[in-house]
Write a protein that binds this DNA or RNA. Sequence first.
DNA 1: AGGAACTAATCAAAGGTTTTATTAATCGCG
DNA 2: CGCGATTAATAAAACCTTTGATTAGTTCCT
Lengths: 171, 171
Amino acid sequence: MSAQDVDFWSFVDAAVERARDRLPGIDPEAMRLILTLYRVTNMVVYDMESVVHRPRGWSYPGFRLVFTLWIAGPMEAKRAAELSGMSRQAVSALVGTLDRDGLVSKVPDVNDRRAVRLSLTTKGDDAISTAFATHNERETLWAETLSAEERDTLVRLLGKLGAREGVRRRR
Amino acid sequence: MSAQDVDFWSFVDAAVERARDRLPGIDPEAMRLILTLYRVTNMVVYDMESVVHRPRGWSYPGFRLVFTLWIAGPMEAKRAAELSGMSRQAVSALVGTLDRDGLVSKVPDVNDRRAVRLSLTTKGDDAISTAFATHNERETLWAETLSAEERDTLVRLLGKLGAREGVRRRR
DNA sequence: AGGAACTAATCAAAGGTTTTATTAATCGCG
DNA sequence: CGCGATTAATAAAACCTTTGATTAGTTCCT
């Protein structure tokens, strides 16, 4: 395949082929896996963000943080970072805008005056309830390309990948 | 399960359970799939970026763009955006820093004076060759949690997901 | 009680992405 | 040919993330 014919998807095949030619020692199938994983996830996130969240004035990270509070209830900023998979600095900055927009409220913790307790405002709760319903419709659109069995398999294999030990985790 | 016991991974289970309770109409398995996909990818990217790329002074997007040029050769900025999955604006900004750092060179296109032709410098080519070797070792670390058959299955299912039509694509 | 070590949050600087708008060049069609 | 519509790239503003540093509060240990 000539470089001219490549598009976003066949780039993965082209990349595997060319990398193998240039660096004989590499593991082409690992490369294909990670490259595919990255591209599919980016497609899904781009679709979700541009169709569901930005039109409502939300960023995807903003949605994630509010969603975390909606699911697990009020919590310290540190814990929100752990559960949402963001850094503490990112949560701190994000809460700044979510607080300003009246979706999240920030209250100094009673027991530990260093800490901050985050919770949804009424407005935040209303916003996430309707936003999540739309978000989930879009998730369904993506998921329905697969059979129920394929979905189970995919979740299982992703879970196995995610259970990898000895890798760098966010702190 | 109480909210107190949840960690980054079991959050997915807690979220599915609670969302089902609150919004009876939702599709919990679609939710589980997309949530899992997102979390696993973020873990992999965080590991790659923090272990392989940032220590070399690269961002993950910078790596992706240089990698695209390494694989497919010199090309217009617009095409680099298509193949790498970035917006044209993002490529434009990124090329600014990569050019400044001496990794990518930018030459006005001979045939279309609006366009810019991107190529790797010698320094860029050397850098990506060694960076990619390390990157791929890390890909192998992740991939080896799965058998060869599981990897094939995972790539196939991800491909099916990515082939979804009727979704919003970057332009 | 007092001081060292640790921890929560935030700040600061640099970089990347997004949407929207602008500039410049090319195309298309009468 | 000439002018309106497209197209390539970049600029601007807002936001998010990262690393590294700082501030403030807590814990531990003697």
